[in-house]
Design a protein around this nucleic acid. Sequence first.
DNA 1: ATGTCAATCGTTCAAATCGTCCATTTTTTA
DNA 2: TAAAAAATGGACGATTTGAACGATTGACAT
Lengths: 292, 292
Amino acid sequence: MDRSLTPKQVAQAIGVSEASLKRWCDKGLVRAVRTEGGHRRMAVEDVLEFLRSTGRRPLHADLLQLPVVRSATSFTLEESIRNLTEGLLAGDEDLALRVVFDLYLAKTSVCDIGDRVIVEAMRSIGERWSNHDVEPYQERRACEICGHILSQLRALIPILSETAPLAIGGTLSGDAYRMPTLLIELVLREAGWRAESFGTGLPAETLCAAMETLRPKLFWLSVSHIGSMSEFLERYNLIYECSQKLKIFIVVGGHALDADVRRQMQYNAFCDSLRHLVNFVAGTNLARPLVG
Amino acid sequence: MDRSLTPKQVAQAIGVSEASLKRWCDKGLVRAVRTEGGHRRMAVEDVLEFLRSTGRRPLHADLLQLPVVRSATSFTLEESIRNLTEGLLAGDEDLALRVVFDLYLAKTSVCDIGDRVIVEAMRSIGERWSNHDVEPYQERRACEICGHILSQLRALIPILSETAPLAIGGTLSGDAYRMPTLLIELVLREAGWRAESFGTGLPAETLCAAMETLRPKLFWLSVSHIGSMSEFLERYNLIYECSQKLKIFIVVGGHALDADVRRQMQYNAFCDSLRHLVNFVAGTNLARPLVG
DNA sequence: ATGTCAATCGTTCAAATCGTCCATTTTTTA
DNA sequence: TAAAAAATGGACGATTTGAACGATTGACAT
């Protein structure tokens, strides 16, 4: 319930003595604040950050308000994908959350978690869906669960500096796929940007208005579904011209953008994966990653 | 409209017990004045001064513990609504999060937070949107922020018991409003149910399949937008008949269900608000609230 | 004004934490 | 391999914290 943890709680959660934990705090390995009487208090996210930096795993995750360990943790990417897929299909949110957090604590970048696990799991679900192996509600439920997990992850990524360059984006009207734009937001934040996803189904006009008002350095458009091609291109051109007028990098991506569609579009970059996106923005030198 | 804070407010704001706060006041660490009866009252500036002088980080990730840092905490429901509306429109996620968590920490039920603050704030935004006072992207961004906040809140609501009755629900194809069904899930969980929202845009057939497979005790349908009335009714009837065949309570609600529409529908309950929903499920005696 | 209920009062008390020292274990160095 | 260095876990008295208690006060509605 409370976000601030006492030394005893943290020591039990990590599985070390309180004496060691105290030393780590004093050495600055775990960020901690002091009460008036000098007692140490730690925030959940700081403890997780410590675990992540030292490659440790929590023994009693429930004390850190993380899901309880119920099943075997995943040791390889393939296992992670399999467990995540299974958890998402069965509606087992704890399992799914556990898989993602295990990866996160194992210092896997959000970019890799997204590209190599979450996207793969959703692709596998999509395949089984088109084979009528799974019900549509399972796919929708999986998206909901993923959304919650990404929200949790998002809360752990350090607050962006106010001076970091701004990036905004989302999907156009008629495209309801939330996950890609959520992942992009997370990955850009990890890369040091002040990224804000505006969600799905945005009219092109208001995206132009947002660019006018907020003057971001980068604009992303995720395209997972195109209803009418002519409408899409018309809307997109509006955005493209606006972005160029304001000297804003425009990055596009998504399964719906095959070579045929891309031929009819102009943009600063097209990205097939989150990794591509990270590499591209690294090249622009506009933002520095938060950690080495 | 006094700027003075009570011990309870301050204690919750800085995340310590009232007992400790009292001691600190008595030691002169926090300046406080006394009412005639001897109760302590603290000024916002003095609390801020205390935070600054003791090196507590008003800057870092402790936003949840230090809601008072921007002196923007809300003391009345009206203030909460105003601050939330402002935060959501400006894209100030920290402010919005603080408003909701302040209410939660003040033991406001999620039901009331939803009905009386979040829904009201979104309604106010909707009004200003139809007056062309705000851009559509601001409304969409507000929904995204609310979604994240509700995800955070969801993570704090105690794990449901495995034996609690199951409730599932969502919105039909063509209805993309996520927030109502998210709120319903939260409120039902608070009321002791094992509630799972399947998200938005679900085909009626798969909802029936979900009912067949999962056999919930309750099914909710949130209806915020109706494209074609005949299509909607056709889909709904499918769900209604399925629910009755399986003896599942079916509860409907949402702005799109006016009296005309309702006349053409059958259901076990129609709810105008989260409070109505809670009262209805309390009457069914199927689940007990987690507290009290 | 009067009554009602939640918040706060001052106090007490058990549990937790503080800083520090020391024995033991693990890692690094000679 | 042996010695040195570093990290760990446990124990100590003194201090701090959080939760309880009955009595009093504040805010608000009638």
